[in-house]
């Protein structure tokens, strides 16, 4: 029995439970698909308004669009910052501004990702029918939130600079901060 198990594991690449569980999961997903039926999965008139398309597009949109975009943006920001620092004469800043740019950018991006329908006024007619109101205020509100995020971050950065300036004035020279590098990719 044990030899059989070892041989199975060597052949398959994992224990039998792994196979049984995965088959069970796929069977459940297959049952879902049969319940839905081809008509619900695939819209013959407008292909992109299909459940099947949205399911796969969700993966592509995250893994091959959203992730590469934010990773690229982060890498660009870090290298741009390093390039600017390389050109400026004098000592490097005592505190890297990188995270004070990242934080509000991520928060602004997250709020846009979650609430873009209101911000770009998409689906106005169903919105009005459901609520009796319109989506007009959301873009302005989002801009205010973005402004507050970057403003607060700027204040925090200024405070941090002041504190570290105060410290370094009291202490002998600290080793300079390492050049910033990306962690978002």
């Amino acid at each position: 029995m044990r030899r059989l198990l070892t041989r199975f594991t060597a052949f398959y690449g994992s224990n039998p439970l792994h196979l049984l569980g995965t088959i069970a999961a796929w069977a459940l997903a297959g049952y879902v698909v049969t319940l839905l039926g081809p008509h619900a999965l695939w819209n013959t008139k407008v292909w992109w308004q299909s459940i099947a398309v949205w399911f796969l597009a969700a993966i592509v949109a995250h893994d091959l669009v959203l992730f590469p975009l934010y990773a690229l943006a982060d890498r660009s920001a870090t290298s741009a910052l390093a390039a600017v620092r390389g050109r400026t004469k004098g000592p490097p800043p005592r505190v890297s501004p990188l995270n004070y740019v990242r934080l509000p950018t991520l928060a602004a991006g997250l709020s846009l990702l979650l609430f873009f329908p209101g911000i770009i006024q998409q689906g106005q007619s169903s919105y009005v029918a459901a609520t009796g109101q319109n989506q007009q205020p959301f873009f302005g509100r989002w801009l205010l939130i973005v402004g507050a995020l970057y403003g607060l971050s700027a204040l925090a950065y200024a405070a941090r600079l002041a504190v570290s300036g105060h410290r370094s004035a009291r202490r002998p020279i600290e080793p300079s901060v390492k050049p910033a590098a990306s962690t978002l990719d």
């Binding site: 619900a40 407008v46 459940i51 609430f115």
Partner: peptide, 14 residues
Amino acid sequence: IQYDYIFGFSFYTA
């Protein structure tokens, strides 16, 4: 939750 039905299919079903 934002009444944006751009996906076109039945939300409940999907």
